[in-house]
Amino acid sequence: MTIATTTELICFLVLSAVVVIGALGVVLLSNIVYSAFLLGGVFTAVAGLYLLLNASFVAMAQILVYVGAINVLILFAIMLVNKREDLKAIANLTTRRAVSAGVCAGLLALLVRVVVTTPWSLPGPPAVGEEATARIGEHLFTDYLLPFEVASVLLLMAMIGAIVLARRDVLATDVVTGEVADQGLIEKARTPLLMNRAE
């Protein structure tokens, strides 16, 4: 084993451990701020895995998009609404946790079993390396042009929708008749569905 492969193996093990432990931490920790920070760590470690696969552009994009944008926004949201609220105790919490842990463990066992028994066609195509950036661009403007363009529609629409939902100035009156608008319009007197459930 050469020095290069040893280094690669060590890096892989460390990164994988960070990913797995970090992801468990995201799910299991009760402090949501810790979860959010750990999520950033997981994203970064995944970027490291991409680097090991010789996909540096993807790795950098992962850091820029997931760590730099998504994770920061998650943290923002958490810190802006950082209300310490004591939630109502949920009945049979231990049983519920045990059940969901069992389901997850079962799913994991199934996946591991299936993945191990599958004859993967290894090794895959060789890594493109430094040329990858140009090749990604080429694919984005040829066979993945349609999804690429639709993604822009998706983002535009999501942005508009977010603004519509977040802004305050909903029309108070009907533009045509000038009557007071009726936001509930149907079944005004009902309580939210969740409350119905709780009864």
Binding site: F37, M60, L64, V67, F76, E130, T133
Partner: peptide, 21 residues
């Protein structure tokens, strides 16, 4: 590295996490 300047852009985006932290 091939990603060059992109590396700086993406790494500088980590900084806010440290600041928030």
């Amino acid at each position: 590295v091939g990603v060059g300047i992109f590396l700086w852009i993406s790494f500088s985006s980590i900084q806010p996490i440290g600041l928030l932290m």
